[in-house]
Simulated assay, not measured.
Amino acid sequence: MFIETAKGVNLFVNDVGAGTPVIFLHGWPVNNNMFEYQLNTLPAEGIRYIGVDMRGYGQSDKPWDGYDYDTMADDVKAIIDELGVKDAVLVGFSMGGAIAIRYMARHNGHGIAKLVLAGAAAPVFTQRNDYPYGLTKQEVNDIIDSACKDRPAMLENFGGMFYSSKPSNPFNQWFMSLGLQAGGHSTIKSAVALRDEDLRGDLDKVLVPTVIFHGKNDKVCPYEFAGEMNKGIANSRIVPFQNSGHGSFYDEREKFNQELLVFLKS
């Protein structure tokens, strides 16, 4: 289905199953199909899968503007309001985790009872003078430059940083194809947001029970991010994924799904 925001942007939402509503926000630069290995199993456990293609990605509209965290958080509110869901669980992966935190702070957690942050690009994705974790701004600038010159090559290189396991070549090609469905300008402008946004002032505004899933071998969002989020979000705990890189949803998909179900049913 498609849901139109107040600014006329149509967002694709994959709404499958019945039961506890769980809203999935994907990472940069793919779409909700990255959660295929959750969608395959969760509806059988009484979970309503609500997968969102954020603006610029997948089947959603690809406007020129609106790739800042505030606007994308507003997009999430438009979806929650249109679907009329209450007491939902919000699952944000990587950039989606950053947008989930901004949503909770900007909209007072409207409609959300619990929060899952999986490999979240938060509280800050790039290094600062007072924040030594993550990529440097120059490293992100290099990724942006690569996207401007040869986006398929950039996607292939970035995908190579995702997993500790060794997915098959067909899997890697499929995952890369998700990135190719995004708008080129959307990919670039979202990377600018990742480089520049800072969520440290948002963390204490997250007031719902929160679980932080994070791979110990994450090369995109280092494990130290989990500790920083845990310190800032009062009612939070960390679930480490010892054998995962950035993509714990696939590297340890059985554990990921099981830990998610435990949290949903607690």
Rank of each mutant, 00 (worst) to 15 (best):
Y133D: 12
V140S: 00
Y133C: 09
A105F: 14
G109Y: 11
G92W: 06
G134P: 04
L135R: 00
G134W: 03
R128C: 00
I143H: 01
G97L: 07
V140I: 09
G134M: 04
L90A: 10
P123S: 05
P123G: 03
P123E: 03
A121F: 03
R106F: 10
V91C: 12
S94M: 06
V116K: 14
Q138K: 14
T126V: 05
Y133W: 15
I144G: 03
N141V: 03
G92R: 05
A120D: 06
A120R: 05
A121Y: 03
G119Q: 04
V140R: 00
F125Y: 11
G92Q: 05
L90E: 08
A113L: 10
T126R: 04
H107A: 14
E139R: 07
Y131I: 00
I99E: 03
G109K: 09
R106D: 12
R128Q: 05
A121S: 09
G109T: 12
G134N: 07
V116N: 13
G109N: 12
G119P: 00
T136F: 09
I101N: 06
I144S: 05
I99L: 11
A118G: 09
Q138M: 09
K114C: 10
E139N: 06
A121L: 04
R128D: 02
F125G: 01
E139W: 03
K114E: 10
E139P: 02
I101K: 06
P123C: 04
R106L: 14
N141P: 00
K114D: 11
G97P: 08
A118L: 09
T126A: 12
R128S: 00
I143P: 01
V89L: 14
L115V: 13
A113G: 15
Y131K: 01
M95Q: 09
V116P: 11
Q138A: 14
I101Q: 06
F125D: 00
V91A: 08
F125I: 01
G111W: 11
Q127W: 03
L135S: 00
G92L: 06
A100W: 13
Y103P: 11
P123V: 04
V124H: 06
V140Y: 01
